Amino acid sequence: SEIVKHAEEALERGEFVRIEHNGRVIEIRNEEALEELRRWVEK
């Protein structure tokens, strides 16, 4: 997914991403959060 790709690229640069999706906000700061995002987006 485009969202996950964006988050992965930001993590590689040492940045973090805040994503709003279906009214929820998730902050991607590490691999664990990235995995959570993947599960969340796939639903």
Rank of each mutant, 00 (worst) to 15 (best):
G23A: 01
E31S: 12
R29C: 15
I28S: 00
G14D: 04
I28M: 02
R29Y: 12
G23E: 03
R24K: 13
R18H: 08
I28P: 00
S1K: 14
A33S: 13
N22I: 06
V41C: 07
A7Y: 03
E31K: 15
E12S: 15
A7R: 01
N30F: 03
H6M: 15
E35S: 07
E36H: 07
R39C: 10
I28T: 00
E32C: 06
R39V: 10
V4M: 11
V17A: 08
E12K: 15
N30Y: 03
I28V: 12
K5F: 06
I28Q: 00
R18M: 12
E9Y: 07
E2A: 12
L11I: 07
E36M: 10
A7F: 04
H6G: 08
N22Q: 10
E32V: 08
I19H: 03
A33F: 05
E9T: 08
E20D: 07
K5N: 06
E20Y: 14
K43P: 06
V17R: 02
H6D: 07
E2K: 08
R13W: 03
N22A: 12
L37P: 00
E9K: 11
K43G: 13
E27I: 14
I3N: 04
I19P: 00
E32T: 10
H21P: 00
E31M: 14
L37F: 10
E27L: 11
L11T: 01
I3P: 03
R29P: 04
R18F: 12
K5T: 07
E32Q: 12
I26G: 00
L37S: 00
S1M: 13
E15M: 07
A33M: 13
E9F: 06
V17N: 02
R18Y: 11
E15H: 08
I19K: 01
A33C: 07
H21T: 07
L37Y: 06
E35R: 08
A33K: 06
L34F: 02
I26P: 00
H6Y: 15
K43N: 12
E20L: 12
G23F: 04
E42A: 12
S1Y: 15
A33H: 12
H21D: 04
E2Y: 12
R18S: 11
E31R: 15
L11M: 06
E31N: 11
K5G: 04
E36D: 08
S1N: 12
V41N: 03
E35D: 11
G14V: 02
V41P: 02
S1F: 14
R38W: 04
K43R: 13
V25G: 02
E12D: 09
I26Q: 02
L37M: 03
E9A: 14
A10C: 09
I3R: 03
E32P: 03
N30I: 02
E2V: 10
R29W: 12
V25W: 12
R39T: 11
V41I: 13
V4P: 02
H21R: 06
I19W: 11
E12H: 15
E12F: 12
E42F: 10
E15V: 09
R13F: 02
E31P: 12
N22V: 06
E31C: 11
V25D: 03
E9I: 09
E36G: 05
I28D: 00
A33W: 05
E36N: 07
R13M: 05
S1E: 12
V25I: 13
E15N: 07
E8H: 10
E32S: 09
K43Q: 14
R18I: 15
A33N: 13
R38Y: 05
H21M: 15
F16E: 05
E2N: 11
E35P: 00
K43L: 14
H6L: 15
R24H: 11
I3G: 03
E31H: 14
N30V: 02
W40Y: 07
I26M: 10
N30C: 08
V4C: 04
E2P: 07
A10N: 03
E8M: 15
E31G: 09
R39S: 13
W40I: 07
R29N: 14
V17E: 03
I19C: 06
W40Q: 05
W40A: 07
E42H: 09
E20Q: 10
R24P: 00
I19S: 01
K43E: 14
R13E: 03
A7G: 02
G23Y: 04
V41K: 02
I19D: 00
E36C: 05
N30H: 06
W40K: 03
E9L: 13
R24I: 13
V25C: 11
R13I: 04
R18Q: 09
L34K: 00
V41A: 06
E42Q: 11
R24F: 14
E36F: 09
F16G: 05
S1L: 13
G23W: 01
E12Q: 15
E15W: 08
V4D: 01
R24T: 09
E8R: 14
V25A: 04
A10G: 05
N22H: 13
L11G: 01
K5C: 05
E20M: 11
E20P: 05
G23I: 00
R39H: 12
R29H: 12
R29A: 11
E8G: 08
E27A: 07
R24W: 14
I3M: 11
R38A: 05
N22L: 12
H21W: 15
I3Q: 06
R38G: 03
H6P: 02
R13N: 06
A7S: 03
K5M: 07
E8L: 13
I26W: 15
S1T: 11
E27P: 03
L34V: 06
V41M: 11
E27S: 06
I26S: 02
I26C: 08
G23M: 02
I26N: 01
E15K: 07
N22E: 12
N30T: 13
E9V: 07
E35L: 07
F16A: 08
A33Y: 04
E42T: 10
I19M: 05
V41R: 02
V17L: 14
I3V: 11
F16I: 14
E35H: 07
R18L: 13
E8Q: 15
E8S: 12
R13H: 05
E2L: 13
E35V: 06
N22W: 11
L11Y: 08
A7Q: 00
R29E: 09
G14I: 01
E42C: 13
